[in-house]
């Protein structure tokens, strides 16, 4: 009797272990997903609120905040801030691409020792709090006689976010078969043609992915912008802060909604593009 009782118990034990294991994996996984996606969904939901302030749960569904946001008279300051932010972000992406892509491409061909020496310096802004960098840049720029300005923000953002693109491009450049460029040369192509027709398409997915990260980070940045930006020139994140301080304006949620939509669309097209290139 004792024997027969033991057998099912023994058989049940691994099942219990498996239940606990999968329970933990799924439970923790779902919790993390909720934690990551929940607030975004919440913001999206609140942006369709028909009430007069930012509140949850929404009283009813409407597009009134989007309408208010798009209204050129009522939301003129937001539009200006958004325009300023997008301008900066685009300029930063161009500048970072021009500096980083050639740097990563060249470094992928440099001796290993040199890469090991240079890489930590180039990646430093990634680990350094951007606040620290912003303050240092402000001091350094004022030494050069350059006060807070558009150029200062551009330089600041470029320095802080360049590592994002550097990483994505270097990874691809290092994995590229060196025989591809050699093949191009044996076929009579000049260095410029080899770079444009062979190397650049090879690292293009990295440039695109990096450009996406840099653009989003620049758009979103507060500390560097706050330190280096002209006081009169307001940027989107700073404007949103101010609006939240003044009143619980529903337009903030509408801005979030638009940004979420833009990011999702960008990411989707990017995945399709880089996915095809990788194959």
């Amino acid at each position: 009797m004792a024997d027969t009782a033991l057998i099912p118990a023994e058989r049940a034990r691994p099942d219990l272990g498996a239940i606990l294991y999968w329970g933990f994996v799924w439970g923790a996984g779902i919790l993390v997903l909720i934690y990551l996606i929940g607030p975004i969904l919440l913001a999206l939901l609140m942006s369709f609120n028909s009430g007069t302030t930012l509140a949850f749960p929404p009283k009813g569904l409407s597009l009134r905040w989007y309408a208010a946001l798009l209204d050129p008279v009522q939301s003129e300051p937001i539009h200006t801030a958004a325009k300023n932010s997008f301008e900066i972000a685009l300029c930063v992406v161009v500048m970072v691409t021009l500096i980083t892509a050639p740097a990563a491409w060249a470094l992928a061909r440099a001796p290993r020792k040199m890469v090991n020496a240079v890489e930590p310096i180039l990646l430093a802004p990634l680990v350094l709090p951007s606040l620290v960098y912003a303050l240092a840049a402000l001091l350094a720029l004022s030494l050069l006689g350059l006060g807070p300005s558009f150029i200062a923000v551009l330089i600041g953002h470029s320095a802080v976010f360049a590592p994002l693109m550097f990483r994505t491009v270097l990874g691809l450049a290092q994995r590229m078969n060196p025989a591809l460029e050699e093949a191009s040369a044996t076929l009579g192509a000049s260095r410029a043609r080899t770079f444009l027709r062979v190397s650049l398409p090879g690292i293009a997915p990295g440039i695109l992915a990096g450009a996406f990260f840099v653009f989003m980070q620049s758009l979103d940045n507060v500390s560097v912008t706050l330190f280096l930006g002209e006081p009169g020139r307001t940027m989107l994140p700073l404007r949103l802060f101010a609006m939240l301080e003044e009143s619980l304006d529903g337009r903030v949620a509408a801005v979030s909604g638009l940004l979420i939509l833009a990011a999702a669309l960008l990411m989707f097209t990017l995945r399709r593009f880089t996915g095809r290139a990788a194959r």
């Binding site: 025989a179 591809l180 050699e182 093949a183 040369a185 027709r197 398409p201 290139a277």
Partner: peptide
């Protein structure tokens, strides 16, 4: 220079331009 030699080369893993 390589590009002026006018030689054809077939590389080990073919080094075809995949794009």
């Amino acid at each position: 220079a390589v590009r002026d030699r006018k030689l054809g080369m077939v590389f080990q893993n073919f080094a075809l331009f995949s794009h």
